[in-house]
Design a protein around this nucleic acid. Structure first.
Lengths: 348, 348
DNA sequence: CTGAAAGCGCTTACAG
DNA sequence: CTGAAAGCGCTTACAG
C-alpha cells in the first residue's frame, strides 16, 4: 500500500483536472473555470468562489494550457523571433519583454542560427501552436511578407517596416549625428567607419546618419574608409588590423563602429599595435553594452535603450492581445551619446 | 465579392482543419491523421495516401499542435531551463540541442534573470504546457527537488546530480588538471585563482581539481589568492585591479580564471597596468569561447565542448521522449587544454 | 484498409 | 447565480 502509493506518486503524478476540483468543491466544472480565470463578477456567488478557491489550493490545480488553448482558440504563448539571441543587447530586450508581458504569457524564443530567420516551415510549425502574439526583432521585409500571421504582431527595431505592423523603433540616427558632432567638435578631420555585413536596416540608418552629419561638419569619411565585418570582436579586430596602416597614413584619428562589439575588436588591435587611445585614435560604438562602461578605457557609445525597447514592445503586444487599441502604432525611442575616455581627448 | 474575399483573407486567414482535408480527399479525418503523422504502414492504401497528401499540399494543411497535444496528452514543446541565456557558451549548447532535437520539437527557452531559476509558479505554468521533455542546464539540487516533472528530463552540466535524472556532464576536472600541469611545467611557482560567485557545482569542480593538481606539482595557490566575482568582464577586471598589487609582491606569475569571461577582465586590467602577458603574468580560463582564439594575445583555455553537450543532451532526451532506453544514463564529455600565447612563454 | 465514435481538458453561450 | 452541453482539432482504440 505504502510503497504502491509512493510508486504511483513518483511515476505518474496525478494530473489534477477541473472536474476533480469541481467534485471536491461541489460545483460544476463551468464554475471552476470561471473562478480559475477570475471571471466571477456577477456570475459566481461569494460562497462558491471560496469553496472553489479552497479546492484549487488543496489539490494544487493549475489550468491546463492545452485544454484551455483549444477551447479559447489561442494559446498563452508569445513567440519571439530574433536573428541573434546570444547578444548582451538582446538579453536586455528580452528582460523588458518579460516584464511587460507578465507571467500569464509564456515567452517562446524562436532560436535560429545567428543572423538567420526561421524558414517558412518553421514559421508554420510555430503558428500551429496558435500563439497569443508575435514579436519580431530586426526583420527584413521578405520575412514579414511570408509571415502572414493571424496573431497580433509587434515589430522591434524594424525602421521602414512600420507599414507591416505596429513597431517600436530606436532613433539611432539622432545618436549617430550626436556622435559625428562630438568628434568634429573635438577637432577630428579624418575618420573611418566599421559597418556590419548583415543588411539589417538599423545599420544602414546608423551609417547614413553618421556620414551625413560628418560631411556637414567637415569630418571626412571617404568610401574607402568604410569596412564591414560580422558582429564579432575577432572579425572586427582582424579587419581593423588589416586596414589601419593605410588609414593611419591618411591621417585618420577616429574610428566609429556600428556596434560596441566591433569597437572592442578595434580597441584590442589598437592596443596591440601600440596606438594610444584616445590620443592617437578615438574609438566609438553603438549599443552602450555594460562592458563599455567598465572597459579600460571606457568606450564612447551611442546608448540604445534595450530594456525600454522590450518593455514598450511587450506593452503594445499586450494591448493588442487583449483587444485594446494602441495609442500610437509606431513608437520611437530616443538614443543618446555617452562620452567616455575612448574619445575624451581632442585630436590634434 | 472580390473585396470581401480579400478582406476575409487578410483579417482571418482560414484555418485549415483535418476535416477540410478529409472532405477534399474523400476520406475520413482518421485517415488524414494517419497520413499526416506518417503512421500509414499497413493501415492506409497507397491510393488514399496519395489523395490525402495531395489535399494537404493543396490546402496547406498543418496539423494543429493544440488539438494534437490534447489528444496525445503531450505537446511537441521541449522546455529548456537555464540560468543564463546570454552567454556565447550557452548559445552553442542551444545550437547543439536544436540540431539533435530536429524540427518536430519546438524549443521553448525558459528565460529568467541571469543566474536565477524559475520560481515554483513559473514551473507549474510551464508544466501546464505538457512539454514533451525538459532540459535543465546547471541546476542546483533544490530546483530539481521542486521540479517533480512528469515529462522526460535530461540534465546538462549538473555534476553530482546524476541521481535526479539522466545527465550529460563535462569533465572539467581533467582540463583543470592539465592546466595546472601546464603552468607548473612552464616553471610557475606562485599562482592565483579567480572563481565565480555563483554556487554552481561545475565551478567548485574546476577550482578543486586545479588546486589539487597545483598543490601536487608545487604550484602554490594560497587561500588568500582566491577571489570570486560574477561572470562579467567588468567585475573581474576591477577585482583583479584591486588584488594584483598584493599578488605581484608575493611573486604571483600566473592567474587562472574559472571562465574565459573572467580572464578577459584580467587581461584588460593587466594591459592597463602595463603588465606584460605572458612574460610577467600568464593568464588562462575555461570555456574556450570563440573570442579566446582571436584575442591578442590568444587566451589559453580549457576547451569545453559546448555544441556536443547540447547535441548529446538533445539525443538522450529524444530517446526518452520516444520511449527508447538509454545506453548510458550518465554521459561525460572530455575537456582539453588549448594553449595559446597568454601562457606560452615560461615564467622565471 | 476504413470510418464512426469516444475522449483529451477546457471555455462559453445557453436555458433555467 | 448555476450547470448541462456543445465544441475547440486532433488521435486512437474499436468494429467492420
Amino acid at each position: 500500500m505504502d510503497s504502491g502509493e509512493q510508486l504511483q506518486h513518483r511515476a505518474r503524478p496525478r494530473r489534477v483536472t477541473a472536474a476533480m476540483v469541481a467534485d471536491r468543491a461541489g460545483v460544476s466544472v463551468a464554475t471552476v473555470s470561471l473562478v480559475a480565470n477570475g471571471k466571477t463578477a456577477g456570475r459566481v456567488s461569494e460562497d462558491n468562489i471560496l469553496r472553489v478557491r479552497e479546492a484549487i489550493a488543496e489539490l494544487g490545480y493549475v489550468v491546463d494550457s492545452i485544454g484551455s488553448s483549444l477551447a479559447r482558440g489561442v494559446s498563452s504563448i508569445v513567440v519571439m523571433v530574433a536573428p541573434d539571441i546570444s547578444n548582451p543587447f538582446f538579453a536586455k530586450v528580452i528582460a523588458g519583454v518579460r516584464e511587460s508581458l507578465g507571467p500569464q504569457y509564456q515567452l517562446l524564443l524562436s532560436v535560429t542560427d545567428a543572423g538567420e530567420f526561421p524558414q517558412a516551415d518553421d514559421v508554420r510549425r510555430l503558428m500551429s501552436l496558435r500563439p497569443a502574439g508575435l514579436l519580431v526583432d530586426a526583420p527584413n521585409a521578405g520575412f514579414l511578407e511570408d509571415l502572414a500571421s493571424p496573431s497580433p504582431l509587434v515589430l522591434l527595431d524594424a525602421p521602414g517596416l512600420e507599414a507591416y505592423a505596429p513597431s517600436v523603433n530606436l532613433d539611432v540616427a539622432s545618436g549617430a549625428r550626436q556622435l559625428a558632432a562630438h568628434l568634429a567638435e573635438a577637432g577630428h578631420r579624418e575618420a573611418a567607419y566599421v559597418d556590419s555585413v548583415t543588411g539589417t536596416e538599423t545599420f544602414a540608418l546608423r551609417r547614413q546618419a553618421f556620414l551625413a552629419e560628418a560631411a556637414a561638419r567637415g569630418l571626412n569619411v571617404g568610401a574607402d574608409r568604410i569596412i564591414s565585418t560580422t558582429v564579432d570582436v575577432g572579425s572586427a579586430a582582424s579587419a581593423f588590423a588589416g586596414t589601419w596602416p593605410g588609414w593611419q597614413r591618411e591621417g585618420v584619428t577616429a574610428v566609429v563602429c556600428c556596434t560596441d562589439t566591433h569597437a572592442y575588436g578595434v580597441l584590442q588591435e589598437a592596443r596591440v599595435a601600440g596606438v594610444k587611445i584616445p590620443d592617437e585614435l578615438a574609438v566609438a560604438g553603438f549599443d552602450d553594452l555594460p562592458y563599455s562602461a567598465t572597459s579600460n578605457p571606457g568606450l564612447t557609445s551611442v546608448h540604445l535603450p534595450a530594456t525600454p525597447l522590450g518593455l514598450r514592445a511587450g506593452e503594445q503586444l499586450r494591448r493588442l492581445m487583449e483587444g485594446k487599441p494602441l495609442d500610437k502604432t509606431a513608437v520611437t525611442l530616443e538614443s543618446s551619446l555617452v562620452v567616455r575616455a575612448s574619445t575624451a581627448a581632442a585630436a590634434e
